[in-house]
Design a binder for these strands. Structure first.
Length: 425
RNA sequence: GGAGAGAUGGCAGAGCGGUUUAAUGCGGCGGUCUUGAAAACCGUUGUCCUUCACGGGACCGGGGGUUCGAAUCCCUCUCUCUCCGCCA
């Protein structure tokens, strides 16, 4: 959520920047400013009446104490009249604030200066590439076939027990998952992240705080009985730790890491996009989250980018980094880098990480502030990134490392898996 | 799931209809004293809205109600604690 006073002071700038996200804000901004004007004048009016009412109540108290009953009655009558005025104003104010909030929440975050205009993911800018595209044999298999050939992931079993997009990992497949999770967590710990294990269900306030609600309600699984949502990413619980919190400047930056299952309904997905591990309803992810001062947040974004790059390097996967264009960067993000690995049998790039700076967009929603050394309350900046999402890493690893001998486990992961290759048992 | 108790400022804790602009203690910050520190003493100590400013208003877990006036009374939700039941 953008700050009201910022919108007021930078009306044209807001509209211009949002056009980069293909969002026409002109009308909305006008409505917001006009509603805010109404809010201010109504508030002023209400406050004046309340001040008067407070004054009268005090008088009544004093008069009663002095035994001047009839005079007190007189004032009480006046006060009663005032009461209906106050009640009306309160209702009006509530209405105005409600519609103001509804409008305010519709405005996306402003894209960072470096974000270029663009319609879709096709306009994302490749800013970095590393690693060699493997040349596979003619008879190379896509990962879903490798998965069943070596009996390490069972998609059909998942469909039977739950539904499509909920695979079983089995044997070395399951052990590989566990190895990757531990590897990712340990790498983050080396960078001074604090490890958390968050709840997998969150309430409505948390969903609002990070921006999943009200917009993307349909993307989350909802447990109606208890009004809880299954998390689409650990970002939600981990960032919401700080909802309505005032930190100290010395606490920053806060670096948290969490492994969690992630649940996404992915309504409307179809075709080759959802084949095998490419898109699941439940998957595993290690997420890094940082809370920072505004001055440092872009430096930290680079640091997080470097962290994710190092992980992919250690896993020996060819990858590239994209700076998302205005049309593809998410509602809440100011700047996002996507990481894609090359999955050589599918011959396509798969997104395995998304690293974003939300600036104070989430902070403003969840009132996450810190007290500066001068004693001022300032909205913090929030950042997060996948480090990393497992399924597509596994997909690329299986495909890229296949040979007649089986599937080779990257050197640095062998300590974690306890085996060097996946072969026919 | 059943029965009971509770939620007050960074923390502890009083207040149970009108000098509460929320007592008091601890902690934090500033000062006096001291070569320095401690102790002692004095002062200060939240968030938000509004205003150029003076000022005004809101906030005692959330929401609603009673009243001229609510931290205080009523309703409701959430959470915490104790006991019982169930349970990895």
């Amino acid at each position: 959520m953008l700050q009201l006073h910022f919108i007021r002071d930078n009306k044209d700038y807001v509209i211009e920047r949002l056009s980069i996200k293909n969002f026409d804000a002109a009308e909305l901004v006008e409505e917001i400013i006009s509603l805010d004007n109404d809010r201010r004048s109504t508030q002023k009016n209400l406050d004046d009446n309340l001040a008067m009412s407070n004054q009268l109540s005090k008088e009544i108290g004093n008069l009663f104490k002095e035994g001047k009953k009839s005079e007190a009655e007189e004032v009480r009558k006046k006060s009663t009249e005032l009461k209906s005025v106050v009640k009306d104003l309160e209702q009006t104010l509530q209405q105005i604030e409600k519609s103001l909030n509804e409008k305010l929440v519709e405005l996306p975050n402003l894209p960072h200066e470096s974000v270029k205009a663009g319609k879709s993911e096709n306009d994302n800018e490749i800013v970095y590439e590393e690693g060699e595209i493997p040349m596979l044999a003619e008879n190379a298999l896509p990962h879903w076939e490798l998965a069943s050939k070596y009996d390490i992931i069972d998609f059909d079993l998942g469909s039977k027990v739950t539904g499509a997009g909920f695979p079983f990992y089995k044997g070395k497949g399951a052990r590989l998952q566990r190895a990757l999770i531990n590897f990712f967590l340990d790498e983050a710990l080396k960078q001074d992240y604090i490890e958390y294990q968050p709840p997998l269900l969150i309430n409505e306030d948390s969903g609002f705080g990070t921006g999943q609600l009200p917009d993307k309600e349909g993307q989350m699984y909802f447990v109606g009985e208890d009004k809880l949502y299954l998390i689409p990413t650990a970002e939600v619980p981990i960032t919401n730790i700080y909802r309505n919190v005032i930190l100290k400047e010395d606490d920053l930056p806060i670096k948290n890491v969490a492994y969690s299952n992630c649940f996404r309904r992915e309504a409307g997905s179809y075709g080759k996009d959802v084949r095998g591990l490419n898109r699941l309803h439940q998957f595993d992810k290690v997420e890094i989250v940082q809370i920072s001062t505004p001055e440092k947040s872009y430096e930290i974004l680079e640091e997080m980018k470097a962290h994710v790059s190092a992980l992919l390097r250690k896993l020996e996967l060819p990858f590239r980094i994209l700076r998302l264009c205005g049309g593809d960067v998410s509602f809440a993000s100011a700047l996002t880098y996507d990481f894609e690995v090359y999955s050589a049998a599918q011959k396509r790039w798969l997104e395995v990480s998304s690293v974003s700076n939300f600036e104070n967009f989430q902070s403003n929603r969840m009132k996450l502030r810190y007290k500066s050394k001068e004693g001022k309350s300032i909205l913090a900046h929030t950042l997060n990134g996948s480090a990393l999402a497992l399924p597509r890493i596994v997909a690329a690893m299986l495909e890229n490392n296949q040979s007649s001998e089986g599937i080779a486990i990257p050197e640095l992961l062998r300590n974690y898996t306890g085996f060097e290759k996946i072969d026919a048992l």
